[in-house]
């Protein structure tokens, strides 16, 4: 009986091992398509442009995956994706990647349209997120506890906000965390005491933007470099891009695409004044 059972076990293990090897040896992750993976902030824009690219270049397939800036960069390094997307500046350890700027994005600070507070200084914004200012009354608004909404750890948007607004201060753990632009916007639109930050391109009339250091977040203010809270939308490849990657990336710099980027509310890389 014992022998019987052991033979079962061996048989099963052999089959599992066989299956694993068989499937693993079958093929790699790339199957003809050009895989672009990374930041969920950049994904909608690139997806949109990729639709056009595929319509104009027959036979070319571009798969766009949203997985986050850091994961995108790693995917490009490891070869899991041909191109990585990032919505933050590259970190020193990532500098040897080939960096390709497609647009500049402003991060708008948003509140409920009924909120009388329309302007904040960077220190005030920092104090709100560090939970040192807790009530709108302290900022000249109507009394009410500030419900501040932040993005999740690792998000490019949060990274830029942390770097430019918070500096060394930490975002308080009391903050509500949401993992997407849409939910941040929906919460702010429904709560008079909420404040959040989203990509300028995603601002709708349901929410009001706040001027930061007396600069209203507008297209022109971003182009001129006056608005402080901006971050780059990058495509990265490990080493020099190959011909297929090159073709797609160059396509994004064509005037037609630049016009779409502008339409979506971002600042095209060609119009960007800073390097």
């Amino acid at each position: 009986m014992a022998h019987h059972r052991r033979s079962h076990l061996l048989l099963v293990m052999a089959i599992i091992a066989g299956l694993s090897i068989g499937v693993a040896g079958c093929r790699g992750p790339q199957s003809g398509g050009l895989t672009v993976a990374g930041s969920t902030s950049v994904q909608p824009l690139v997806e949109h442009l990729a639709e056009r690219y595929m319509a104009e270049h027959h036979g070319e397939v571009v798969n766009v995956q949203g997985s986050g800036s850091t994961a995108g960069i790693r995917a490009a390094v490891s070869g899991a994706a041909a191109i990585g997307m990032a919505s933050r500046e590259l970190e020193p350890t990532e500098r040897d990647l080939h960096r390709f700027l497609i647009a500049q994005d402003a991060i708008a600070v948003i509140v409920h349209p009924a909120n009388p507070v329309k302007a904040l200084r960077r220190e005030q914004l920092r104090d709100i997120y560090a939970r040192r200012i807790r009530d709108w009354q302290q900022l000249g608004g109507n009394p009410g506890t500030i419900n501040f909404i932040t993005r999740e750890e690792g998000s490019g948007t949060r990274g830029a906000f942390q770097e430019i607004v918070m500096g060394d201060a930490e975002i308080s753990a009391d903050g509500i965390v949401q993992d997407s632009t849409g939910t941040v916007r929906a919460i702010v639109a429904g709560d008079r005491n909420a404040i959040g930050y989203i990509s300028l391109g995603m601002v709708t009339p349901e929410v009001a933007t706040i001027s930061l250091d007396e600069v209203v977040p507008t297209h022109d203010a971003v182009i001129s470099g006056q608005y402080p809270l901006t971050r780059p939308f990058l495509l990265v490849t490990s080493g020099e891009p190959g011909p297929r990657e090159r073709a797609f990336m160059d396509y994004l710099h064509q005037p037609a695409c630049q016009a779409i980027i502008e339409e979506e509310g971002y600042v095209p890389s060609a119009a960007e004044s800073r390097s």
Binding site: S67, S69, E152, E153, G154, D179
Partner: peptide
């Protein structure tokens, strides 16, 4: 109060996480 659960912690940050994270 808002809170975070074990499952939401995984799903929120998995997309971005690398290394020790």
């Amino acid at each position: 109060d808002p809170a975070r659960t074990l499952t939401s912690n995984i799903a929120l940050e998995m997309a971005y996480a690398a290394g020790a994270h």
